[in-house]
Design a protein around this nucleic acid. Structure first.
Lengths: 252, 252
DNA sequence: AATGTTCATTTATACTATCAATGAGATGTC
DNA sequence: GACATCTCATTGATAGTATAAATGAACATT
């Protein structure tokens, strides 16, 4: 069924067979391809993908490292419940998005952002040095330039938010760069169609200014506003869909 | 120097040689053992640990999956900058804590908690079902029991906070169970020595009640208070240490 | 009947030997 | 000195074989 030959695996994604197989397997697992089917044994996997068992073993080991699989003699290799997947792993995140687009997932993304980024902004207000403040201002400048078509709005937005994460000077916050980037990239598929121009340059300016003035509380609330607006927008759209155009959804 | 024989690796940690080596290597990398030394080649690693090259390769692949290593032909295996380590990986987290105890790390932990947990509480207030609310209440009850020596205060505390993460019904928040647990376990080494009894059962009760009444805003602020109190405590202690007992540190 | 015990079987685990591909650095050539 | 070429250490990949661990069934024991 899923028969693949080595050349496919090689070209698909990855500098070598193992990475190619990692990607292929990871994707099919996350998609749920094996949901009601037993996961193959090492030997079968190797045969299916046309690679040696060592390559297979290494790919499987990488997937267990990311929490997707576990292997035990006699029992075979089995898929772990999705609760034990490491969702902050770049690969897992990518696979998650490659399956059908899900508003639910996007909402979860933003529910996370609304926790992380306001606090990151507050930390940045306290901890940022001049270079980091400049990086934030540069991001903002790019957003303004994008308003007049001089720059890419999405990339500018990402640059701004990532700069703040970096300025927080907390290694854990740095880890969210991927999540935030992908969340923004995905949001645009959904958000901009509705709101025409995401804009909200003023809101971003408020964050920058608060950080410049080293005011953590103002930075936090300003950032919170940006993201909770997105969340509210998602909720209203969701409601509209539910009431199927018959009744107007109340609540602003 | 680091010469190990297979039997050590086996017994150290892990159901098999690969996992044993994963743990041994991971630990030494995170400790910084190779900071100013070139990382050995596959062949050398295998010889040093007294295992075959395949085992070594699998361990290395797992470490690359966690972001600690990268390997390229001719160049060899090299340690990635710590910024690309996956800090939310259980193993990485454990290795991080096994090296010398660091107040800095503990502060970073709690700076993360102060972002996550209040928002998790708010989500729980909206999303929790009866079973989840009961789990939260049970955690609180255990904390009260612990007050009178009828239960383990630390485990009760962890149960309470984890129950809230679960009740948030957001898969990303679930991922923080490990972080929160280890943060609490580590905190106690530092916090309880100072404050006698951590207690603050009332503060936890406030969170529980807000969630029971499905009031997200109150839940958020109540939870925020719990954690920011810990952070404040850490800051004052830090200040006291700096002023070396000469001047009293002001500020409550 | 309930409870250990042995044993066969399946599957991951581990080792060895061997060859291919790669690419950084040394070497040579113009 | 710039550019091509060679070298070879190192990862990448395969094949074959042997071992160890987990499971369940058959069997023996109480």
């Amino acid at each position: 069924m899923i028969a693949t030959n080595p050349r496919d695996v090689r070209t698909q994604l990855g500098r070598n067979l193992t990475h190619g197989m990692l990607d292929a397997l990871g994707r099919t697992i996350v998609i749920g391809e094996y949901e009601n089917r037993v996961f193959p044994t090492e030997a079968e996997l190797a045969k299916q993908h046309g690679v040696s068992r060592s390559v297979t073993r290494e790919a499987v080991k990488m997937l267990t490292a990311k929490g997707l699989l576990s292997a035990r003699p006699r029992q075979g290799t089995i898929i772990q419940p999705s609760t034990s997947w490491n969702l902050f792993d770049t690969d897992v995140l990518r696979w998650l998005l490659e399956r059908k687009f899900s508003v639910e997932l996007l909402r979860h993304f933003n529910q996370l952002r609304v926790a992380i980024e306001p606090e990151a902004a507050a930390l940045a207000a306290v901890n940022a040095d001049n270079a980091e403040r400049k990086a934030i201002s540069d991001g903002l400048a790019r957003m303004q330039a994008a308003e007049e078509g001089m720059d890419n709005a999405l990339e500018a937005d990402i640059a701004f938010h990532v700069a703040i994460l970096k300025a927080s000077r907390n290694p854990f916050y740095l880890q969210f760069q991927d999540v935030v980037s992908t969340a923004l990239r995905t949001s645009i598929l959904f958000t901009n169609r509705i709101k025409g121009r995401s804009a909200s340059v003023e809101a971003h300016t408020a964050v920058r200014d608060a950080i410049a003035k080293q005011n953590p509380d103002r930075a936090r609330t300003a950032m919170r506003k940006i993201i909770s607006d997105v969340l509210d927008l998602m909720d209203t759209v969701q409601l509209e869909k539910k009431s199927a155009g018959s009744k107007k959804s109340a609540k602003k």
